[in-house]
């Protein structure tokens, strides 16, 4: 923890970054905060916390307004994967960002499971979070087709269309969202259309979802929405050998390819 504070202090004093996006402990809880050199005493209150925010999206908003400045960001492994995708999709510039990796806290170790819990830029400590064992996806894959439909109707039927999954997502950066497009997906009517509301978003997550789990955390109705996105990630990985947040180069879904992709 002290390593992170020292590093942030050093970077801000050197002036190599204009600000550091991390989390601060306040009386009302842990919230995202931009630390700047002018208020160096705040750095003492820097915390890794036991909550997660879509810091990547916040950094994107800051970077849009300050395109020439370089910023530091606190990264868990999931944030780091999201950053990789942001670079790939030209939403952030790699030379304008300094990533400082932190391990997941004990609370997150219990609550969250992930393919690779250790960030590449880890500064201190170690992440011993549970590795994802694919149990949730396999459980649904093992069901009969009708049973699967029943299960999903029941789960997705709980949706109250709060758009929390979209708003908390670090990868949702489109300026115009198709879920706000009335002719395609009706706004403000519940129960939500089955399957268009969730399937549209799931399809859009192909080649994008970094499996951070913020959508499921944000969901007030406890819909296991992460399972669909995990399935999307697996499908894209199996079909094109492209793993979001890990693979190098362009996404095979973002470019046309050579036409050898077979009809399946």
């Amino acid at each position: 923890m002290q390593e992170l504070k020292d590093e942030v202090k050093k970077l801000l004093e050197q002036g190599s970054i204009a600000g550091f996006l991390g989390m601060i402990a306040t009386t009302s809880g842990v919230v995202p905060h931009l630390f700047v050199a002018d208020k160096a005493d705040e750095i003492e209150k820097l915390t890794t916390g036991d909550v997660r925010y879509s810091l990547v999206q916040i950094l994107r908003w800051i970077a849009v307004r300050h395109p020439d400045d370089k910023f530091g960001i606190m990264c868990r492994a999931c944030d780091e994967r999201a950053m990789t995708e942001m670079f790939r999709n030209s939403q952030l510039s790699m030379d304008k960002v300094v990533m400082l990796g932190i391990p997941c806290t004990d609370e997150l170790r219990i609550a969250c499971e992930c393919e690779e819990p250790t960030p590449k830029s880890l500064l201190f400590g170690q992440s011993t979070a549970k590795k994802w064992d694919k149990a949730d996806v396999e459980r649904i894959d093992a069901m009969e087709t009708e049973e699967r439909l029943d299960w999903w109707t029941e789960q997705l039927g709980k949706c109250i269309k709060c758009y929390g999954c979209r708003n908390s997502c670090p990868m949702c950066f489109c300026r115009v969202c198709t879920l706000n497009d009335d002719p395609l997906v009706k706004r403000g009517e519940i129960p939500s259309e089955f399957p268009s509301f969730h399937l549209t978003r799931a399809f859009h997550m192909a080649g994008r979802c970094v499996d951070c789990g913020l959508c499921e955390e944000a969901c007030p109705m406890d819909i296991p929405i992460r399972t669909i996105y995990r399935k999307v990630r697996l499908v894209v990985g199996e079909l094109t050998n492209f793993w979001t947040g890990e693979s190098k180069g362009k996404s095979p879904l973002a470019e046309l390819g050579d036409g050898t992709f077979p009809i399946q």
């Binding site: 087709t145 439909l149 399937l199 399809f203 192909a206 399935k231 999307v232 992709f261």
Partner: peptide, 17 residues
């Protein structure tokens, strides 16, 4: 070709053959 391949697997996952 890519789109339909992904869509088929997603439909199957939601219970639509």
């Amino acid at each position: 070709a890519k789109r339909v391949a992904i869509m088929k697997r997603l439909l199957e996952f939601l219970g639509i053959p």
